[in-house]
């Protein structure tokens, strides 16, 4: 069955709201407006204003409120319009949600799910386009997800809500209208493993969220040249699935990481370090990465395009690795 990413997310939330009265959705314009990305359209009429709760513009306040509600026995899903705005709520996520279980000696878990849009590509400029997944993935105590496929958009929320600890879900803004084939596997979505989306023997392209599709496009172009790229979708940014990464790199002996975050201090850098630590002797070439240019994401289309990782840059990086080998 073909379905959009947005519809997959919608179905996942609908299912959760219908199945468990402890689940509620809270955020700016999730109700009357229908969600800034229209994911919760129609929910207000169906579930009412108590459970589809429009929050005032107060990211710190309502994210903290969701955390408190989770401590109080509810299963809140809180939506933040974009990762840029989530910085106003960072305190509650990092200083409260992430630490409460450990700091209380295991007494208090925080079963909150925080969803937010991330990433560039829509000419929204430097305050709506950034990719700060790594800021969250840096923090122990939370689980960080980046669903890239309709299967994960449909399946990850259920697992996230079943998790007794805080989960942060990044939805790449370019993916909402994307159509995909929903496979029966969506029900098996877990919060631990990476997934090989395309098998190949020559190089592993490691990507997450929006860059998964840039990597797929690069793999198609490379295939035309006879280069078989494996595409690995990280899916889970914390904890990273080292085993799947190392197994793939061990087979292909080369890796390119495609990361929409800025290169400096990036998740790509972390993955490279892990490959050095765990698979150095399996490598036939230095590990490479394609990241966003180190500038605030600009408005003009050509400039934005130049700032974000694109398939041709991935193709070029692969060619260079193979040329070196």
């Amino acid at each position: 069955m073909k379905i959009t990413y947005r519809e997959a997310l919608r179905q996942a939330m609908h299912e959760a709201l219908a199945a468990d009265s402890r689940v509620f959705l809270m955020g700016e314009d999730v109700g009357k407006y229908g969600g800034s990305y229209a994911v919760s359209k129609g929910f207000l009429a169906e579930f009412g204003p108590e459970r589809i709760r429009d929050a005032p513009l107060s990211e710190l306040g309502f994210v903290g409120t969701a955390i408190g509600a989770a401590l109080g026995g509810m299963r809140p899903i809180v939506e933040i319009m974009t990762v840029n705005f989530s910085l106003l709520a960072l305190d509650q996520i990092v200083n409260t949600a992430a630490v409460y279980r450990h700091m209380s000696g295991g007494q208090f878990s925080v079963p909150v799910v925080v969803r937010m849009a991330t990433g560039g590509g829509r000419q929204l400029a430097a305050q709506h386009s950034h990719s700060l997944e790594n800021w969250y993935a840096h923090v122990p105590g939370i689980t960080v997800l980046a669903p890239a496929t309709v299967d994960d958009a449909r399946g990850m929320l259920r697992a996230a809500l079943a998790d007794p600890d805080p989960v942060v879900i990044f939805e790449h803004a370019m993916l909402y209208p994307m159509e995909g084939e929903l496979s029966p596997d969506w029900e098996k979505a877990d919060l631990r493993t990476a997934k090989i989306l395309r098998a190949g023997r020559d190089v592993t392209l490691i990507a997450y969220g929006g860059t998964v599709w840039k990597a797929q496009e690069a793999a198609r172009q490379l295939a035309a040249e006879g280069i078989e790229a494996e595409v690995l979708d990280l899916r889970v940014l914390r904890p990273l699935d080292d085993a799947t990464i190392m197994a793939s790199v061990g087979r292909t002996r080369r890796a390119v990481i495609v990361d929409e975050g800025w290169r400096t201090g990036s998740l790509a850098g972390e993955i490279m370090a892990r490959i050095m630590e765990q698979a150095f002797y399996e490598l036939d070439a230095p590990v490479a990465r394609v990241c966003s240019a180190e500038v605030p994401i600009p408005y003009a289309k050509h400039m934005e395009g130049a700032a974000l990782p694109q398939a041709p840059a991935v193709v070029a990086a692969v060619r260079q690795l193979l040329a070196k080998a």
């Binding site: 509620f24 108590e50 710190l60 306040g61 309502f62 994210v63 903290g64 409120t65 969701a66 955390i67 408190g68 509600a69 989770a70 401590l71 109080g72 026995g73 509810m74 809140p76 305190d91 509650q92 200083n95 409260t96 409460y100 700091m103 209380s104 208090f108």
Partner: peptide
């Protein structure tokens, strides 16, 4: 006792959430 919070103001949203949970339940 839901903590001892050492972020000045950090406990307030948490308390609001505990109260919201109570109201909803």
């Amino acid at each position: 006792l839901f903590g001892g919070n050492a972020i000045v103001g950090g406990g307030l949203p948490l308390a609001v959430g505990l109260a919201l949970a109570e109201q909803m339940q």
